[in-house]
Amino acid sequence: MFRKLRRIRQALSTSDCAAILKKGTSGVLTLSGDDGYPYAVPLSYVYDGSALYFHGAKAGHKLDAIRRDCRASFCVIDQDQIIPEKYTTYFRSVIVFGRMRILEEGTEKRAAIEKLAARYSPDEDEAARQSEIDREYSRLCMMALSIEHMTGKQAIELVRDQGEK
Rank of each mutant, 00 (worst) to 15 (best):
M1F: 09
F2Y: 15
K4T: 13
R9Q: 13
Q10V: 02
Q10E: 15
A11Y: 11
L12V: 02
S15D: 14
C17H: 07
C17T: 03
A18N: 15
A19S: 15
L21G: 09
L21E: 10
T25G: 14
T25Q: 14
S26F: 14
G27N: 08
G33V: 05
D34C: 09
Y39S: 02
Y45M: 12
S50Y: 08
A51D: 04
L52W: 08
Y53Q: 03
Y53P: 01
H55C: 09
H55P: 07
H55S: 03
G56P: 00
K58P: 01
H61L: 09
H61K: 15
K62P: 01
K62F: 06
D64K: 15
D64C: 05
D69G: 03
A72K: 06
S73R: 04
F74R: 01
V76C: 11
D80A: 10
I82F: 08
E85K: 00
Y87W: 10
T88S: 07
R92P: 05
V96S: 08
M100Y: 02
L103H: 03
G106D: 06
T107V: 14
T107N: 12
K109C: 05
R110G: 08
A111E: 15
I113L: 05
E114L: 08
K115G: 10
A117R: 00
S121L: 10
S121M: 12
P122D: 05
P122V: 06
E124Y: 09
D125T: 10
A127K: 13
A127F: 11
A128Y: 10
R129E: 01
R129N: 09
R129D: 07
Q130V: 07
D134M: 06
R135N: 11
R135T: 12
E136H: 13
E136F: 13
Y137C: 05
L140E: 04
C141Y: 00
C141D: 04
M143D: 05
A144N: 06
A144I: 10
I147G: 09
H149C: 04
G152M: 01
G152N: 04
G152V: 01
K153A: 04
K153L: 04
D161C: 00
Q162G: 06
Q162L: 09
K165D: 10
